[in-house]
């Protein structure tokens, strides 16, 4: 565990908390893509299948449980409790366009052809693109609330910090994982345009509005 990895985990946790608090306090999930949230729930379900078979540390297990619980709590709030506020007309991204390629790629490019390893690899590929429905929704409506922007910034920072962690681990431990690193780079690159808008607009107190 190094400071970048911890920072990444905390940024991820912060993103999840921001999203849950936003939905809970405003009693609304307007502007949030339920499709992206489904993909995140699927991602962490596939990745943490080893929760009971591979004990790493108390920290590791607790974080896994928290991420899973938060992912399903978000789905519950969006699709059950505050269903009426869900903006499904703008959330039209086709999930199969992301799930099927991620599953196909996981079957072909993996570290080992076993169920748990292919599921882990699938989760890595799926997570890389899971935010696309959300970004698509923002581009469709042309704007995002500030709180949604903060959520996206924290979520994007998480994988960016993991990349720094992987560079650090490569030099300090000689450790590297090509699958996680390449997917992590793709994931972070997808946020670049958003990062630019966030820094130039939201941090200056303006609403995130896409240029016409």
């Amino acid at each position: 565990m190094n400071i970048f990895r911890l920072g990444g985990d905390l940024a991820h946790l912060l993103a999840i908390i921001i999203l849950l608090l936003k939905i809970w306090t405003t009693r609304s999930c307007a502007g949030i893509s339920g499709k992206s949230q489904i993909l995140f729930a699927l991602t962490f379900t596939a990745r943490y299948l080893d929760l009971f078979t591979n004990f790493v540390s108390v920290y590791n297990s607790v974080m896994k449980v928290v991420y899973l619980a938060a992912a399903y709590a978000t789905l519950y709030l969006m699709y059950v409790k505050f269903k009426a506020t869900y903006d499904h007309n703008h959330d039209t991204f086709r999930l199969e366009f992301l799930i099927l390629p991620a599953a196909g790629l996981a079957l072909i490019i993996n570290h080992e052809f076993s169920i748990i390893e292919v599921m882990w690899t699938f989760s890595i590929y799926l997570e890389a693109v899971a935010i696309l429905p959300q970004l698509f929704m923002v581009s469709k409506t042309g704007e995002a609330e500030s709180i949604t922007s903060h959520y996206l910034f924290a979520l994007g920072s998480y994988r960016a910090l993991y990349i720094v962690n992987w560079v650090y681990r490569y030099y300090s431990e000689g450790f590297y994982d090509m699958i996680a690193t390449l997917a992590g780079v793709v994931q972070t690159v997808l946020y670049c345009d958003f990062f630019y808008l966030y820094i130039t607009k939201v941090l200056k107190g303006k609403k995130l509005q896409l240029p016409a």
Binding site: H12, N54, V56, Y67, H111, F175, Y176, D177, A180
Partner: peptide
């Protein structure tokens, strides 16, 4: 041997 070590990440 990255197969096992990477699983300590989240």
């Amino acid at each position: 041997g990255s197969l096992v070590e990477t699983k300590d990440e989240l």
